[in-house]
């Protein structure tokens, strides 16, 4: 009798409606926003390497931050862009903010504006914001050889040659780091058309889905470091001491992972129990 009840329990558990699982995961992700436990965010080497490199840059150095993404992946990539942009502003490093994706500039414009206001930096003087231009590989190749040919005007329509920050910034010789943020493979475009031919140091911020693909390039030394998913962004926020969008989401992410691992374990136990009885 007892055996029959146990069997029914596991069978019922295995056949549970998927919507119940969605609901449990949703609760596990919403509640941590109200009941923060302050779980630690350990820093990985891939993130620390980018941070350390930017720390070595001086105010005369130029960093290209390319937001190569659209709204579908912005919850992961926008916090990364925000964190590195803020780090560069904090250290007075010159920034060229741009996007190879048509929807990119619209997404980063408010983030740039907010960070610039917080750090009291001026567009055109401390950083420049470029518009989307068609033809990603042509844009990268032009940028490496002649910045003005690539971007005749900035996002706001000001002629590039009139931007004080770009005085003396002409081509690859003047770039000290490129960081593409991508949910696809734009890091490979930058690798092919900027890093390999011209040797400009390359790092990347990628969605968690793409993160595993980057390890071969990190191991080979072609990409110096990586921010992988929301976790990477939260690590960077911790490093710069500004707990913002990504850090807020990490607690929810941790709890959801615990629930999913629990489901996987329970599901497998149920599968084994039912399998043995059959």
């Amino acid at each position: 009798m007892a055996e029959e009840i146990k069997k029914t329990f596991w069978e019922r558990l295995i056949q549970i409606d998927r919507r119940v699982i969605y609901l449990i995961i949703a609760l596990a992700m919403v509640l941590p926003f109200f009941f923060q436990m302050g779980l630690p965010i350990p820093i990985t080497k891939e993130v620390k390497d980018i941070y350390d490199y930017i720390e070595t840059l001086t105010p005369s150095d130029v960093v290209i931050l390319s937001a190569d993404f659209d709204p579908s992946v912005s919850p992961e990539l926008l916090p990364m862009f925000d964190a590195i942009f803020r780090h560069c502003l904090k250290n007075n490093i010159k920034i060229i903010a741009m996007s190879l994706y048509i929807q990119g500039p619209g997404l980063i414009a408010p983030v740039i504006q907010e960070a610039a206001t917080d750090y009291q930096k001026i567009n055109g003087v401390d950083y420049v914001f470029m518009p989307w231009v068609i033809g990603w590989h042509i844009v990268i190749m032009d940028l490496m050889t002649d910045l003005q040919r690539s971007f005749p005007t900035d996002f706001y329509g000001t002629r590039t040659e009139d931007l004080p920050m770009l005085d003396g910034v002409k081509n690859y010789e003047n770039y000290d780091l490129i960081v593409p943020f991508t949910g696809a493979s734009s890091y490979a475009w930058w690798l092919l058309y900027a890093h390999e031919p011209y040797g400009v140091p390359l790092a990347a911020g990628v969605t968690a889905v793409s993160a595993a693909d980057l390890y071969p390039y990190i191991q080979s030394g072609q990409i110096m470091g990586m921010l992988g998913g929301l976790k990477g962004a939260a690590e960077y926020e911790t490093l710069i001491g500004e707990k913002r969008m990504a850090t807020m989401g990490m607690e929810a992410q941790n709890w959801a992972h615990v629930i999913i691992i629990l489901f996987i374990v329970i599901g497998n136990i149920g599968y084994l129990v039912i399998g043995k009885k059959k």
């Binding site: 992700m29 992946v73 992961e76 969605t207 968690a208 959801a256």
Partner: peptide, 8 residues
Amino acid sequence: MARLSLFI
């Protein structure tokens, strides 16, 4: 992790 981040 990526899918959860989008929901977050």
